[in-house]
Nucleic acid binder design. Structure first.
Length: 761
DNA sequence: AAAAAAC
């Protein structure tokens, strides 16, 4: 009976008037539909509702309206009765609306997918001179009409912040009851008069609420007299710390049991005895890798005819049935014998990267997509999307994918991986059905799996235009939305399925998705898809694909974790990475703020109170929600993104950041991987990640396609050592800086400090 | 230990 708790009556009649016309159907009709749907469930209304519903069909005799008294839950104003019959917002229409949304975004997303600024990319040393906030061309553009801090404050409605500010976890919810729905935000004042009688005033007043004002509450320290600042100069920065310091850390440090726990399940023996590798040694190894970089394009042209050698290779290995039981993974790794696809020996690696053939950016200069073997329609579509010429990872993997080989590819976040597998995949599917009629109800030829629904959607946004340019169809298969439309699309016949494992497997089991003709399977974020709990469904899905189907595994952090899949499914895979993708070539600036826990909430608010898009990562869903509320309360419009939200909210909240309606998104790791939003220039990690790969992916939400970006991680003193280790693994140099609430440091990171240039201007 | 992924 939870539906009955929804307040249906009690709203002023005016709010039920369809006076917003077609424009506002989404809110009004959706709720109207919900009411209709719910009514028959209530015993007292059943007869009534049934009669009423049948009335229009009977030709409009005097219909019995619901209760006429406002305040009764069945209340419907007379005017509503005389209007056209209410339409249900059917699942399909709703889906269509979502589709329309994604179409709207598609044009931008194409451009977003592909970097423009490769050549103008600032070098690392230039980045320190990045223009400050006021200097930036976009400064102040979006919020010029927004009341400035000073203008607000007097009439702030809710709680007084001058005395003390409710910050604790217990305070944020109580304070904002159910009567104030989340979506009533400053940026949408037009909603105020729409459905919730009690909220207009407050919402209006909310607009006046002052921004979080540090200056008023806490006296600023004079920088010079603050002793704490002075000793900062003495504090060893991370970069400066030599081996000596590290050794000191290590001696004193108890051996960490949980080190590498994420990999322990991969190979227990090796992880137990793995020595802690020095950062420098690992760097050296990478440099070595780079030196022996070979041209991948040659390598991609495969000498092997897939069916024959592939089959032979496969038969030596245990059949999948043999190994489902006992020890999950074979101890023997076939790869090690293969020159092209060898892993590092396990006892020698911290990163456990796959050894890969590198391709350097300079090698792909002057190479075009057409040169790589893509057809003219696809090349043209790519150009329209903003991808004029291939990036390194694309140049490396496209020929290999086209040749039909299994491919593993590692390319830094934002380096164009989606096109790297998407474009040749479309080409292959096209070739595989050349001459054949595209039949109604044909089963898909390719499947792309992603770890989150948002990512699946985003991949489709990139691939769909490419596929459509050659007459192929894609469809999204992911959970959280009614499956009707997805099944409908499959019935009509699609060529490329893009989805998340849960729903894909669900539809397979229901017999509504047939992968037996699926010749290509892609795993995006492949290492993540191989994590515990994820890998089993993925394996089951892959087993449904056609025998000998081509497998493509892509990720920014491709490592041995994918071995489980590689062993079972891949045949002599080509492995590619891009040379020179290290800290020096990164456009991301990393910093770690060591803070007192009690300052955390305020520091976070201060950090996100800025121009420009900010993505905040929290460890749990509840904390993500809490932070979003906290920022909102401080007058900084913010939304959250996590798995506790329904899909509509997830999509909507992400879209709000994309469109710029809010500048702050607080997310769990659901947004850590793959999600591309233009112009996120600051990533704040409210909680430090546990895994270096998570750090890399989270920070990869900024600095996309050569743009600059900043990542700041908040930690407490106790976490410094763990953080140091994590950064070493990620091969990231980041200064550790003590920060207090009113630190200029925070102003600087948020981009609010006027620079010398501003002052002279 | 959390998060993600299906009804």
């Amino acid at each position: 009976m939870p539906k009955n708790k929804k307040p249906r009556g009690g709203r002023p009649a005016a709010n039920f008037e369809p006076r917003y016309g077609a424009k506002k159907t989404s809110f009004h009709d959706r709720h109207a539909g919900a009411r209709e749907g719910a009514r028959p469930e209530r015993g007292g209304f059943r007869a009534d509702a049934g009669e009423r519903r049948s009335a229009p069909a009977a030709g409009g005799y005097d219909r019995r309206p619901g209760s006429r008294s406002a305040g009764h839950r069945g209340y419907r104003p007379a005017e509503a009765e005389t209007g056209a019959p209410k339409q249900r917002w059917s699942a399909q229409e709703r889906a269509g609306r979502d589709e329309a949304r994604s179409i709207r975004n598609r044009a931008e997303s194409g451009r977003r997918e592909t970097p423009h600024h490769r050549d103008e990319r600032p070098r690392f040393d230039e980045r320190s001179e990045r223009p400050r906030y006021n200097d930036r061309p976009t400064a102040g553009r979006r919020f010029d009409d927004r009341p400035r801090r000073d203008d607000r404050g007097a009439e702030r409605p809710r709680f007084e912040r001058d005395g003390q500010r409710p910050t604790g976890p217990g305070t944020y919810r109580d304070d904002r009851g159910a009567e104030r729905p989340r979506f009533n935000r400053d940026e949408r004042p037009q909603r105020d008069d729409r459905g919730f009688a009690d909220r207009g005033d407050r919402a209006g007043a909310r607009n006046e609420r002052p921004r979080f004002d540090r200056g008023a509450e806490r006296p600023r320290f004079n920088r010079d007299e603050r002793p704490q600042r002075d000793d900062r100069a003495e504090r060893p920065r991370f970069n400066d710390r030599g081996a000596e310091r590290r050794r000191f850390d290590r001696d004193e440090r108890p051996r960490r049991d949980d080190r590498g726990s994420d990999r322990a399940r991969f190979n227990d023996a090796s992880s137990a005895e793995r020595p802690a590798r020095s950062y420098d040694a690992d760097r050296a190894r990478r440099a070595f890798d780079r030196d022996r970089a070979q041209r991948s394009i040659e390598g991609g042209r495969d000498e092997r005819s897939r069916p024959s050698t592939g089959g032979a290779y496969r038969t030596e290995r245990p059949r999948r049935d043999d190994r489902t039981g006992g020890d999950s993974r074979p101890s023997r790794n076939d790869w090690n014998a293969k020159p092209k696809a060898a892993f590092e020996p396990t006892d020698d690696v911290v990163h456990e990267r796959l050894e890969a053939k590198s391709v350097a950016a300079v090698e792909v200069d002057g190479v075009s997509f057409a040169d790589l073997g893509l057809g003219s329609n696809i090349v043209e579509t790519l150009a329209n999307m903003g991808a004029a010429s291939p990036f390194a990872i694309q140049a490396a993997s496209i020929p290999a994918v086209l040749s039909g080989r299994d491919v593993l590819a590692r390319g830094r976040t934002g380096s164009g991986k989606t096109i790297a597998f998407g474009a040749p995949l479309v080409e292959n599917v096209l070739k595989s059905q050349a001459g054949k009629r595209r039949e109604f109800g044909r089963s898909p030829r390719a499947i792309i799996l992603a770890p989150t629904r948002e990512l699946a959607l985003q991949i489709d946004r990139t691939i769909q235009p490419i596929a459509r340019s050659v007459g192929l169809f894609t469809t999204q298969i992911y959970g959280g939305v009614p499956q009707g439309r997805q099944v409908g699309a499959l019935k009509k016949g699609v060529d490329i399925v893009i989805g998340t494992p849960g729903r894909v497997e669900d539809l397979i089991n229901q017999g509504k998705l047939d992968l037996s003709d699926c010749r290509i399977a892609v795993l995006d974020e492949a290492d993540h898809m191989c994590e515990l709990g994820f890998v089993e469904p993925v394996q089951r899905i892959l087993r449904h694909t056609a025998d000998g189907s081509q497998k493509l595994l892509f990720s920014a952090t491709l490592d041995r974790e994918v071995a489980a899949l590689v062993d079972e499914f891949l045949v002599d895979p080509a492995v590619y990475e891009v040379a020179g993708e290290d800290q020096d070539s990164s456009t991301i600036e990393h910093r770690v703020l060591v803070i007192e826990h009690r300052d955390k909430a305020d520091i976070l608010t201060s950090l996100v109170d800025r121009e420009g898009k900010t993505l905040v990562f929290a460890r749990t869903r509840a904390y993500a929600d809490m932070l979003a509320e906290q920022f909102d309360d401080a007058g900084i419009p913010a939304v959250s993104l996590h798995g506790d939200l329904n899909q509509a909210k997830r999509t909507r909240n992400l879209e709000r950041l994309t469109s710029g309606r809010v500048n702050v998104l607080v997310a769990t790791d659901v947004a850590a991987r793959g999600i591309h939003v233009d112009d996120i220039d600051l990533v704040v990690q409210a909680d430090a990640p546990d895994e270096y790969k998570t750090y890399l992916h989270r920070s990869g939400r900024t600095g996309r396609a050569g743009r600059s970006g900043r990542v700041v991680t908040l930690i407490t003193r106790q976490r410094q050592r763990r953080m140091t280790e994590l950064l070493q693994r990620a091969e990231i140099d980041a200064p550790f800086e003590n920060a207090r609430l009113d630190d200029d440091l925070i102003e600087e990171i948020a981009g609010r400090v006027p620079t010398a240039a501003d002052l002279t201007a």
